[in-house]
């Protein structure tokens, strides 16, 4: 079956141990997680997971429903790249003597619009936000120039292009429903 890189956005309560439960859904179905980012969301007490994985649409639908089934998960949705704004960031630690002696290295850095954020006599740190492909391409060029000491690439973060904030609607809907039930009882 044709595989697509899907981005899942999951909102949950801020509860310890939930990450395990979310990733276990992938493990059970033997799907590798390509990248994972967890952080606080714009809503107090709500955490946001951004997960990418290669799989087919039928499977990702089932994964989303099984994640959503976890008690403390608020909402889960899957997206293709055209439905989101996405970004990653990478840090490259390179040798300062190499940077100084090889003019090509600074040309590469400039060509990729990367930023040098720290320089000392031993090493320099380059920072590059962007998409996976450019980040890896920069790494490869620096590596060929023989100056990379360390390299790290972040997980993907993503924001939906939709004009509707589904999590806000969801939370408002849930509160409304609760009030409604409560009023019915009285």
């Amino acid at each position: 079956m044709d595989k697509t890189l899907y981005t899942l956005i999951v909102y949950s309560e801020n509860i310890a141990g939930l990450l395990n439960q979310v990733t276990a859904v992938f493990t059970r179905r033997q799907i590798n997680i390509e990248s994972l980012n967890v952080s606080a969301s714009s809503i107090d007490g709500v955490h946001k997971y951004t997960i990418t994985a290669w799989t087919d649409e039928d499977t990702i639908k089932k994964v989303v429903k099984q994640i959503e089934k976890k008690i403390d998960v608020l909402q889960a949705h899957y997206f293709t790249d055209d439905e989101i704004f996405l970004q990653e960031i990478a840090l490259y630690k390179i040798s300062t003597p190499e940077l100084q002696s090889n003019a090509n290295v600074s040309k590469i850095i400039r060509r990729y619009n990367a930023r040098i954020v720290e320089v000392n006599s031993v090493y320099s740190i380059v920072e590059k936000p962007g998409l996976t492909e450019e980040i890896i391409a920069l790494y490869k060029e620096l590596q060929e120039a023989g100056c990379v000491l360390q390299y790290v690439r972040s997980g993907r973060i993503a924001i939906t292009k939709s004009r509707v904030e589904r999590i806000n609607e969801f939370l408002a809907g849930r509160e409304e429903k609760h009030r409604h039930c409560y009023n019915d009882l009285n």
Partner: peptide
Amino acid sequence: VDFIRSYE
């Protein structure tokens, strides 16, 4: 407890 917002 008769309501959990993350659980329907």
